[in-house]
Design a binder for these strands. Structure first.
Length: 868
RNA sequence: GGGCGGUUAGCUCAAUUGGUUAGAGCGUCGGUCUCACAUACCGAAGGUUAGAGGUUCAAUUCCUCUACCGCCCACCA
């Protein structure tokens, strides 16, 4: 196969992914005896394609999956998609709007047919995106929240909750979105600060002063059934219990008290509209007030609204203000920044409505969900998110389950029209179980989309059946997701799992950064700032995107992404590719040597550097520090392996020196394994080209390479310093390398003479002064105009002629300082006063420093001994 | 109103949990077609770590306050 000068991911990636698929590398066996590692994918909504945020999340999961696979685990990553009830509705309705239709013009059945079409289209595209990204999902276990398996779980779950008395139907104030035409949960409401007015309206009394209230929604006045004041508000004490006349409606309503009223706001007196405000509803309920619904689901005034009937809420407001002014009851208007509640999807102002809905009682099931996190059975990473979760669980309210939509799981409740019996059933009943009547109809509503998502980790494994998957792969290990669905989804999975399976759904929740656009906006498809990963992959390659995203993932709140940033990953992939080009003729022909005596300090040095890398990588991944993982791989390969090791080793590579071949083999192969989780395509391609094996996925994660400690290793860095010094001088003084080298190899020139010759660069020259004796002319290769590292390779023997005295003095000085410091620490630790007064952590810190310094001292003494 | 995160080089971000001279990529400046790579190589410049106090032998790191920026939660009508 050709080895092109520039890495071409497009040519490689499709082929490699097909190879993995054909060989079923993604598949988890139920007969395997290995330890298991399981992730269920956060199922993407089928509303559209994945954006960069998804690419990040799935890259991170794939990294962990592949690492665990290399570590010898039986890994299972269950893929799937979410029907995303309301979001999908919105998308389809947007399309319909273009055709001039609403979903009601189509009717339920035709709308659902269209939704399934939509689902098939986008599910396919999403899967193609995941594959393009390289995700090693078990495609034989692909699920959809509305497929047969998941639907069954949903129905079972609803019935079990109901049978335990946790699901009830009641009138409550719910958030009604007039555009989506459904109830939505509190979490789907967002408050927008909107410029508005505060209207001050006088509610007169038959005899006496009356009372002035302040309101932001004068149109709800039509449904007022009381005026409330704070029980301790001196201003109103006298008139509590009196009646006032509701303006425009001429209805007498009482003045009541409630501790929920804020004395400071407005006039301290508040109009109470129990049917259109959650707080008013609560106050109304406590005082047995009637609730009069004056605004309907289309936001029009109902027949209860007298002459205003039929107007929209906006029109009614205008009319009512006009009429109040006419009657002299509108005292004043003030400008006011209104926290307006809107639908999170369409930004339509929501209408709080009194409505009959299904609810899930939360108090009881929230308790264990709180405990598992408190006790650390489920761990949030980064840790801070657990407080967000706990705070929500602490104050959780009952969950409104029903939605007045079509696309989703229909509520399994059946009503008998003959005897009004209510049946909740696992299978559709054909007749009433009480009166055997045949007039049965199913509840029209569907379940909140998160109801099915809440069952995802176990529903995907076949629950409620006792499947082998359920026995083997549950609980799962990790959930990786973004912060905005901690309540909507993560919390609900946890309490659902505990309730139904008595197990936690996963033991770790990783919350990744939010991906922002270049200008700092949130990635969002609907706002058109989402970037399709396929586009980036097309231009830069999957590995490049994966590497770049991982490198940006630093456990911070968010990071900004734009296309050009991916050049980082692309260039890195190309660098690796080219190193492979260089190594291919050397390594692909020869089987890996068993072991070899290392004859060069450089070989020992790179192995010790690799061991450092390995421990960094393990540490980073174990702590979900993805950025550190990516950075250390980058740093090692580019600036340690390529810049120094390969340059130093070129000659010995050409001469096929056994020590170097052995080292190259062991370093390069093991490096590819460490890199594989993050850049799977490139590493697999190289692995196969080098004929290292059938697939890198058959390999095992590297262990530390055994290395006998040698005195020469520590000297490599001194040599690097020297070379850097020489380069700096050359570059700064613009001396050609030829001249400089001539100077250096001239035996008649002492270091001192050199210093004299090259005045003004003392700092660098001091480095040069380490060269005491120069007699290397015959050893050096022919000079070119180049001064890349390889040209300095012949300096290696200089290791033996370093100015020993100078180096010794430097180390001795450092040792002396260290000893002084250590003595101080020891004195402090002996000081009983100090120990008594100091906090435990201070003492521990001192102990730590002592150990640290002692070790450093040992190392320095060791170095010193080499110099003798 | 409450909670959380942030403020470090021109830009985007790091800093092994308090320890040598605060790093990287991009950008800038200077030098290179060099037999893996110009998607490259070599060198350089660039920082009072938002500000003010405090603790410490030592602070980007811990504490307090201030100023901005961002996110989340909340029944001020």
């Amino acid at each position: 196969m050709e080895f092109a000068k520039v890495y071409n991911p497009k040519e490689v990636e499709k082929r490699i992914y097909s190879f993995w698929e054909e060989n079923r590398y993604y598949h988890a066996s139920i007969t395997s005896k290995k330890k298991r590692f399981v992730i269920s994918i956060p199922p993407p909504n089928i509303t559209g394609s994945l954006h960069i945020g998804h690419a990040l999340n799935n890259t991170l999961q794939d990294i962990l999956i592949r690492k665990k696979k290399l570590e010898g685990f039986e890994v299972l990553w269950i893929p799937g998609t979410d029907h995303a009830s309301i979001a999908t509705h919105n998308q389809i309705e947007k399309e319909l709007k273009k055709e001039g239709k609403t979903r009601f013009d189509l009717g339920r059945e035709k709308f659902l047919a269209r939704a399934w079409e939509w689902k098939n289209k986008y599910e396919g595209y999403i899967i193609s995106q995941l594959k393009a990204l390289g995700c090693l999902c078990d495609w034989e276990r692909l699920r959809f929240t509305m497929d047969e398996v998941c639907s069954r779980a949903v129905r079972e779950a609803f019935c079990r909750y109901y049978e335990k008395g946790l699901i009830y139907r009641d009138y409550r104030i719910i958030n009604w979105c007039p555009r989506c035409k459904t109830a939505i949960s509190d979490l789907e409401v967002k408050t927008l600060i909107t410029p508005s007015k505060l209207w001050f309206i006088k509610y007169p009394r038959r005899d006496g002063e009356g009372v002035m209230i302040a309101t932001t929604r004068p149109e709800t006045l039509l449904g007022d059934t009381a005026v409330a004041v704070h029980p301790e508000d001196e201003r109103y004490k006298k008139i509590i219990g009196e009646k006032v006349i509701l303006p425009l409606m001429n209805r007498e309503i009482p003045i009541i008290t409630s501790p929920l009223v804020d004395k400071e706001f407005g006039t301290g007196a508040v109009k109470i509209t129990p049917a259109h405000d959650a707080l008013d509803f609560e106050i109304g309920r406590a005082n047995n007030l009637p609730a009069i619904k004056v605004i309907d689901e289309d936001t029009r005034i109902t027949s209860e609204g007298g002459k205003y009937q039929g107007l929209t809420r906006e029109e009614a407001r205008v009319e009512i203000i006009k009429d109040l002014t006419k009657e002299g009851l509108l005292i004043k208007e003030e400008d006011y920044s209104l926290p307006l509640k809107t639908c999170v999807r369409c930004e339509t102002p929501i209408e709080p409505l009194l409505s009959l809905q299904w609810f899930l009682k939360m108090a009881e099931i929230a308790q264990p969900a709180k405990e598992v996190v408190e006790k650390g059975e489920i761990r949030f990473i980064p840790d801070r998110w657990k407080y967000v979760y706990l705070d929500w669980m602490e104050n959780v309210k009952d969950w409104c389950l029903s939605r007045q939509l079509w696309w989703g799981h229909r509520i399994p409740v059946f009503y008998c029209d003959d005897c009004q019996e209510i049946m909740v059933s696992r299978i559709d009943p054909s007749e009433c179980k009480r009166c055997q009547g045949k007039n049965i109809r199913q509840d029209e509503d569907i379940l909140d989309t998160w109801f099915s998502s809440a069952l995802w980790p176990f529903a995907t494994l076949g629950w409620p059946e006792d499947t082998p998957e359920m026995a083997l792969f549950y609980p799962t290990d990790l959930l990786s997701t973004d912060p905005d669905i901690i309540f909507l989804w993560v919390a609900r999975m946890i309490f659902s799992s505990l309730f139904f399976t008595k197990k936690i759904p996963f033991h770790t929740v990783y919350i990744h950064s939010t991906v922002l656009s270049q200008s700092g906006e949130r990635m969002s498809r609907s706002r058109g700032v989402g970037v399709d990963p396929n586009l980036i992959i097309e231009r830069y390659g999957s590995d490049a995107l994966r590497f770049t995203l991982t490198n940006l993932e630093t456990q911070s709140q968010s990071f900004r992404f734009w296309e050009e940033r991916v050049t980082l990953g692309r260039n890195f992939a190309n660098k690796i590719w080219n190193a492979a080009r260089l190594l291919h003729p050397v390594l692909s022909q020869i089987p890996q040597p068993e072991s070899e005596d290392l004859t060069s300090p450089i070989d020992e040095w790179i192995i010790s550097e690799f061991n450092k890398l390995l421990s960094d990588v393990n540490h980073s991944l174990n702590n979900y520090n993805f950025s550190a993982y990516a950075t250390s791989l980058y740093e090692f390969f580019w600036h340690t392996f390529c810049d120094w090791y390969l340059e130093f080793s070129k000659r010995r590579m050409r001469e096929k020196e056994p020590s170097t071949l052995y080292t190259l083999h062991i370093i390069f192969r093991n490096y590819l394994k460490l890199l594989h989780p993050i850049m799977p395509f490139l590493t697999e391609e190289i692995w196969q080209r080098f004929r290292f094996g059938k697939s890198i996925l058959d390999e095992r994660w590297p262990e530390k390479i055994p290395l006998l400690p040698s005195e020469k290793v520590g000297m490599v860095s001194i040599m690097q310093e020297m070379i850097k010094g020489i380069r700096t001088i050359r570059s700064e003084l613009l001396i050609s390398p030829k001249v400089l080298l001539t100077l250096l190899i001239n035996p008649s020139l002492t270091p001192q003479a050199l210093i004299d010759f090259l005045k003004g660069n003392m700092e660098h020259l001091q480095t040069l002064a380490k060269v005491k004796e120069i007699g290397l002319a015959e050893k050096r290769p022919p000079l070119s105009s180049s001064y890349s590292t390889s040209q300095f390779e012949f300096y290696l023997p200089l290791l033996g002629v370093i100015d020993v005295n100078k180096e010794r003095m430097r180390i001795e000085k450092e040792i002396y300082e260290l000893q002084q410091e250590l003595a101080k620490i020891e004195e402090r630790l002996r000081d009983e006063e100090f120990i008594k007064k100091a906090k435990e952590e201070v003492r521990v810190r001192e102990e730590k420093r002592k150990i640290e310094f002692t070790e450093k001292l040992k190392r320095l003494n060791n170095n010193l001994s080499y110099l003798v």
